[in-house]
C-alpha cells in the first residue's frame, strides 16, 4: 500500500517524456500563426487544460453514478480526486485564456459563452468543495457529492447552450462555423499535430496525477484509521 506501484513510476516517466515532447513541439515545431504571432501558442496548452478540466468533471459525474449504485468508497475517492485536479486545470485554462485574450481581444475578460460557462463551472465545483467540507459523516459526504457531481455535470451543456444564444466572440477553431470574433484561425498540418499531441499528453497527465491523488486519498484514510487505533 505505501510503496509506489511500479506501473505508476513507469507512467510518471512516460508522462514526463510526453510532456517534454509536447513543450518542444509547441515551441519549436508548431509554426508561428500569421496574424497573432507567438501568443497563439498559448492555445495548445490552454485547450488541453480545459480538456482535462471537462474530462475530470465528466469522470466525477460517472463516479458519482458508480458510487450510488455500488456504495464502494473507492468511487467517491476517484470522483473527489478528479474534481480537485480538474478544478485546478480548469482554473489554469481560464487564466491562460485570459492572458491570450488580452492582446487579441484587447480585454482580459468578456462575457462570451465559453468564458462565462467556464466561470460558472468553476463556481459549481467550488460549491462541490464547500458541500464536502460541510458534512462530517463520510458516507453522507460521498452520497451528496455523488448527487451534486451528477447535477453539476449535466447542467454544463445547458449553461453553455443558453449563454451561447447570446452572441459569441470566442473563436471556433475545431469544426464548422466561421469565427465571428477576432482570433479565429485555421490550423495547418504541424499545428494540428501539436494540438492533438498536447491533448493526448494532457490526458495521460490527468490519469497520472489522478492516480497519485487517489493514492493520497487512500493513504490518508489509512492514516486516519491508524490514528483512531492509537487513540482508542
Amino acid at each position: 500500500m505505501e510503496e509506489k506501484p511500479r506501473f505508476l513510476s513507469l507512467l510518471d516517466g512516460i508522462t514526463g517524456i510526453l510532456f517534454l515532447a509536447a513543450v518542444l513541439l509547441v515551441f519549436f515545431y508548431a509554426p508561428l500563426e500569421r496574424s497573432m504571432g507567438a501568443v497563439q501558442k498559448v492555445f495548445y496548452f490552454h485547450v488541453s487544460t480545459a480538456w482535462v478540466g471537462m474530462l475530470g468533471f465528466f469522470v466525477s459525474a460517472l463516479m458519482g453514478g458508480m458510487y450510488i449504485l455500488s456504495r464502494k468508497k473507492i468511487w467517491d475517492m476517484i470522483g473527489f480526486s478528479s474534481v480537485e485536479i480538474s478544478f485546478i486545470f480548469f482554473f489554469i485554462a481560464i487564466v491562460s485564456g485570459s492572458i491570450w485574450a488580452r492582446p487579441i481581444w484587447n480585454t482580459w475578460w468578456t462575457w462570451d459563452p465559453r468564458l462565462t460557462t467556464a466561470a460558472v463551472v468553476e463556481l459549481i465545483y467550488g460549491a462541490y468543495f464547500l458541500l464536502r467540507q460541510a458534512i462530517d459523516e463520510p458516507q453522507q459526504k460521498a452520497r451528496f457529492s455523488a448527487v451534486y457531481a451528477i447535477f453539476g455535470f449535466l447542467s454544463v451543456p445547458l449553461t453553455f447552450v443558453s449563454i451561447r444564444m447570446l452572441r459569441t466572440i470566442h473563436p471556433v477553431v475545431i469544426g464548422a462555423g466561421d469565427p465571428t470574433g477576432g482570433g479565429g484561425f485555421s490550423m495547418t498540418g504541424p499545428m494540428q499535430v501539436t494540438f492533438f499531441f498536447s491533448l493526448f499528453t494532457f490526458s495521460v497527465l490527468f490519469v497520472d496525477v489522478l492516480w497519485h491523488r487517489i493514492r493520497l486519498e487512500k493513504l490518508e484514510s489509512m492514516m486516519n484509521k491508524l490514528r483512531l487505533e492509537l487513540t482508542s
Partner: peptide, 29 residues
C-alpha cells in the same frame, strides 16, 4: 433536492444558495 442536502450539512443556510445558483443559471438566462 439541494435544500434536502443542505439542511443536513453543517453550514445549512449559507450552503443552499451557493449550491443552487450556479446550477440554475441555465434556467435564469
Amino acid at each position: 433536492l439541494l435544500a434536502a442536502m443542505s439542511v443536513q450539512a453543517r453550514t445549512r443556510d449559507i450552503l443552499l444558495p451557493i449550491l443552487l445558483f450556479p446550477l440554475t443559471i441555465p434556467i435564469l438566462i
